[in-house]
Every structure is written in structure tokens, then in C-alpha cells.
Design a protein around this nucleic acid. Structure first.
Lengths: 336, 336
DNA sequence: ATGTCATCCGTGAACGTTCACGTGAGCGCT
DNA sequence: AGCGCTCACGTGAACGTTCACGGATGACAT
């Protein structure tokens, strides 16, 4: 039962003063009662509490935050929460933040540059630090996050203003290629991420590994970052190169789409087509066959990001680039 | 609750006053420059901006929030972000909140009562309203959210303080049973959620539907809310009732685990075992075979919750229980 | 009666920002 | 000269809470 007032009137907030007046005490006494401080009589405390409840009083977080600066809030910016990889990273970050008693405001930019920009414009006045994925140029980022610690994930940075956590899949991808080669594959394709103009870093790892085994690295096609995108890309790849017997993918979602497509066109995995993804999502264990993947520890990723934020916030001992690395390693399922 | 304080010297915040002094103007002029208000000369504005940057000034969100109450922040509480159902709900809520320019603080309680309690204790002083899942008793909820709008999801409430969004799967489950009966099934099992002591509402829908078709509703076994839990439960169910040819599950995750287990024990789906889940997760389209499910529109669920929060916040036209319903309906994949 | 002490409570000030005003300079017009 | 207007900027006040004090009251001992 909401206390009804005629619509149109300004509802003026119930303040600590109102409670004080109603209980016949001072502000300070109300504050004491509500915050469980000492120096207050039991009966008056109860009286204040009753008055507060009767008036529906709720302290202003702004006023409180202004005077005691003990709460830290960080902003987590991700392109798409429905992408399981980001879900895992977000969950990990939330867990690490909770352990510190921090609050996390989550922004899903829906993979759209304008939403990302909009987020940047408002986030500065809402949080104490930012961690997440950004696709905008650094100077723009710099502009809006001025004075705040910023931890980037999976992105190189040039400005000294930012920290970034590097994802190192070089060895993992190498191991994946080695695994495929050992299984007799010689025509290995890759379903890369197509959003960017230039090929991805993961593709470069692939070419490097392929080169060391004398494998042709040019069997590559761009894929939309979704299961459907993976399916479509696999079809395209096989149409151009029917002799491909194994593929690496930019990430697990694409790989899962490829698995599904392979089943549709009657290619048995891993017999007719070996598939190795990237990310090592929990989801990979649910599909058939269980996905092999160059897996990275998303939990550590999130924890590392939060840890670095903590260091930047206090200014003590920030980690250097060498420490801010999460290495991915080959984890075999049954798809390769 | 644990607030880590910085050891050492407190670096005293740089305020708008410092910028003003440094630029040789007044606070108000600084405010004008930073907020792009008019009534300021171009050169002084630039001077102020330079001074602000030089000092590393960043406005206090508390002070700003105190004076202009234009930002609303809501708290979203979920038991487990890694559970795809909650991921979808969270994504939907984030989207709806973004459309309103709201900020969302996300709390993952990790399915633990103590974390939920801890969240409740701090959330009151951080947000303007709360939406989410809670497992604690109503009076406890009431205690901590006093004076705030609260929208519960998928939970009945008795106190008038709360709104809750009801998930109505009665017709959908009925349709699912009807579908199975039409396909010739007579022994239909259910993998229910086992966490609660009493059977779930979804099981009650099942018994009701089963009754109307003269089907034995007692082929039920509790499952942990995970893929592994679904697999284990299916094994238990089939051990007790080998003649079961179709199952409904509490949710899609359990169903997906059942699918995997069926494959392991050599039961072909849907030929040897028909499976129908609940939730209609996007994930269901990725598994083999694509999952049939009593699907609910998670996007609408999130949007509805946010919409109701908006109404409660402004006090105009809050929706009633009859409107706060999301109906689930049978969506056929290939698993039944 | 006086001092000592603990308990309970109130008063200004501060936190950092924006809003509603006020002010003075400069300019053009009658 | 006087009036009115615009432009650029400054000044007190307000937002709602907590902190650092200080004061009043009574109990108890001296």
C-alpha cells in the first residue's frame, strides 16, 4: 500500500530531519539509532525506529556517500551479456568484487558503438573505476574516463593511462595445431572473427603455428560471433576448400555453430572434421561431442581485473603488463 | 561489509573549488564549463577545462547526485549469473533499464543464503529499487528493503509491500503433456527441482495436466539445477521406472543434462526418449537434438519487471497481479 | 556540598555540487 | 542622461547525512 498522494504534487523526500521531529529527538540521535551506534537509550532508539518506519524513511545514499567515502563502485562494461564468454567474465568479476565488498554496475553495450559511447558519457559520474571491453579509440576512452582507473580486457593499449589484461593464446593455439597435425591433418582451416577489418590476433597465432608445421594458413573465413555465424562460415569454408579436415575457430560460440552445421551436412566430428574452439566455455561440455578448446581461465581473468583495479585505486603496487596476462591452454574434449 | 581502508596518507580529493582557484574563477563558472551550460566565455571555458585536466579533477557523484536527483539506480539480484536462464533475465533487465537511462547494480548471490543476506544488508543504501530473485522469508526481505519498490520474479508473495511477476506455465505444460500423449506416450516422467522441500509449482502443473489425460504423475525425481544434475536424475528415474518413454524437466539446463545422459546410455532422443524442458533458453537451440521446451519470453520478463519498477517509483498506475504475468508456451524443437 | 564519571543527547560544521539569484560591465536606443 | 537589455560571472543557499564536539542529567563517592 503505497501512501497515495494526489498526482501532480511534489512528493518531497522524507529526510532524517522529519524522522527526528516526529520522534522528538535530534538528527544525530536518529542517525545513532539507524546505524546501531552506541550512546543511545533503548527506548528512544525504538521510538526513533518506529517513527522512521511510520514515515517510510530511507536514508539518501548520496548524502551518506558524500560524508563517508567507504563504498567503492566499479563499472563493468561488456559488449553482450548473452555471449557466454562475457557472461563468465562478468560472473568472475562480480565474484571478485563481492569478496571486496564492492558494488558493480553492469553496462551491456549490445555490441553497438553508440551504446558504448553513451555508456562512457554517463559512467564517469557513477563509478570509481572501470573494467571491461571497449572498441572505441583510446583518446575517446581517455576523454571520458579521465582520472579514473581503467582496466581493459583482451585489448592492447598504448596510453599509459590504462591497464590491460592480455590474453595469451600463442602456446595454446600452437598446441592445438600440433595436436591436429599429430592426428594426421594437413588441411586446417580457421573460422576467424570478421567484425574487425584486420585479422584477429588469434589468427596470427594460428598462422605462426601453421608455419612451423608447414601448413597452409590461408584457409580462413570470417564468421559472425554467434552460433549461426559459425555455421555459415563453415559452409563457406568447405565450399571453397572441400579438402579441409580440421578447423580452429575464433571462439567457442563459433565452434559450436560449426559443430551443428557439420552435423547437418553429415560430417561426423571428429572423424570427418576435427574442431577446436577458443575460450574453453563451460558450455562446451554440454554440446555433442564435447568441445575441444584452447581454454582460458575466465575466473582468473575476472579476478585479475578486479585485483588490478584495487591496486590502481589505492595506488599501491599496480601490476605491470607482464603480470597482467592470462594464458590459454589446449583442453581436449572429443571434437578433436 | 568488509571495507578496506587505504593505509597511509589520505590524498584529499581535488574538488571543484580547487579547479576554480587554479583557473581564477568561481565554482559556478567551473560547473558551467564542465556541464556545457551557456553563459560562459569561450576562452575562460577552455581555461577551466585545462585546469580541471591538469589537476585530475573528477566530480563527486555523491555531491552531484545529492543536488540533482535525476539518476536512478536499481539493484538486480540473481542467484547465479552462470545459469543461462538468469543470464537471459539479467540481459533483458539491463536492456530495459538502459532504455530508460537507468543504472543497474548486479548482485550474484551464488545461490547462498548468507550472500543473499549480505546483499540485502548493503543494497538498501545503494539503489532506488530492487528487482530479482530471493529465497529468504518475506519479513526479512521487508526489513531490509523498507521504503523501496521491490519486484520479485517467479515467486509468490503475500505482503502487499511487494510486486511479483508470476510465471504461468500451466497451459504450456498442459500443451506439452498433450503433445506427448498425442505421440503415444503413456509413461511420462518428470525431473523436478530438488532444492526446495516441497515439490515445485511446475510439478503441480504437470500433475494437473497428467490427471486430465489419465497419466500417472508419480514418476518424479528431484534434480540438482545443473546439467550434471539432470543426467544423474535421469539415471535415477530410469532405474526406478525403466518403462518411461518421455520426460518433462523443471528447466532447460536439467533437460540438456538429460539429453546428454540419454546419449551416453544409448537412448536415442526423441525415438527412445522424448524430452521437453522448461524456460526456452537460446541455449536449447545449440544442443543435439534442438530442445523442445515450454518457453517463456525472458526478454519480456525483464522488461516487465523494469516497467513495474518505473511505475512504483513514480507512483503512477502500478500494474496489478493480473498484468504481472509471463505465460510460457510450448515451443517444439526436435527432442519431442 | 562538591567532585567525578558515565550515559544520553543536541549543535554547528563539513562533505562537494548545483540552483536561484544578484551584480556589474558594455552596448544601443530614445 | 537615462533606460533597458544581454553577456559573463560570482554569492549564498540548499541537498541530506555524519563527525567532532560540548552540554545536561543523574548516580555515586568523597
Amino acid at each position: 500500500m503505497v501512501s497515495s498522494s494526489v498526482s501532480g504534487t511534489e512528493p518531497r523526500r522524507v529526510t532524517i530531519h522529519d524522522v527526528a521531529r516526529s520522534a522528538g529527538v535530534s538528527r544525530q540521535t536518529v542517525s545513532r539509532a539507524l546505524n546501531d551506534k552506541g550512546e543511545i537509550d533503548g527506548t528512544t532508539k525504538q521510538r526513533v525506529l518506529d517513527a522512521a518506519r511510520a514515515l517510510g524513511y530511507r536514508p539518501s545514499r548520496f548524502a551518506r556517500g558524500l560524508v563517508r567515502q567507504d563504498t567503492t563502485t566499479i563499472g563493468l562494461v561488456i559488449p553482450d551479456l548473452l555471449n557466454p564468454f562475457f557472461t563468465e567474465v562478468a560472473a568472475a568479476a562480480l565474484e571478485a568484487a563481492r569478496a571486496r565488498g564492492w558494488h558493480v554496475v553492469v553496462y551491456d553495450t549490445a555490441d553497438r558503438a553508440e551504446e558504448e559511447l553513451g555508456t562512457l558519457q554517463v559512467i564517469g559520474s557513477q563509478v570509481d573505476a572501470v573494467v571491461g571491453y571497449f572498441s572505441c579509440p583510446e583518446d575517446e576512452l581517455e576523454l571520458f574516463t579521465r582520472g579514473m582507473p581503467v582496466v581493459l580486457i583482451g585489448r592492447e593499449h598504448h596510453s599509459a593511462r590504462f591497464s590491460s589484461i592480455r590474453i595469451d593464446g600463442e602456446e595454446g593455439v600452437h598446441a592445438a595445431v600440433a595436436h591436429l597435425v599429430a592426428a594426421g591433418h594437413t588441411r586446417i582451416g580457421m573460422l576467424d572473427h570478421q567484425a574487425r577489418a584486420e585479422p584477429s590476433v588469434r589468427y596470427e597465432w594460428f598462422t605462426a603455428a601453421a608455419a612451423s608445421y608447414g601448413i597452409d594458413p590461408d584457409l580462413v573465413v570470417g564468421a559472425d560471433q554467434s552460433a549461426d555465424g559459425g555455421g555459415t562460415a563453415l559452409r563457406t569454408l568447405l565450399a571453397a576448400h572441400p579438402d579441409v579436415t580440421a578447423i580452429l575457430t575464433f571462439n567457442d560460440i563459433i565452434a559450436i555453430g560449426a559443430l551443428r552445421e557439420a552435423r547437418r551436412i553429415g560430417r561426423s566430428v571428429p572423424r570427418d572434421l576435427a574442431v577446436i574452439g577458443f575460450d574453453g566455455l563451460q558450455l562446451g561440455a554440454l554440446v555433442e561431442p564435447p568441445l575441444s578448446s584452447v581454454a582460458l581461465d575466465t575466473r582468473r581473468l575476472g579476478a585479475l581485473a578486479i585485483d588490478q583495479v584495487a591496486r590502481l585505486l589505492t595506488g599501491v603496487d599496480p601490476l605491470t603488463a607482464d603480470d597482467l596476462v592470462v594464458r590459454a591452454e589446449l583442453r581436449l574434449g572429443e571434437s578433436a
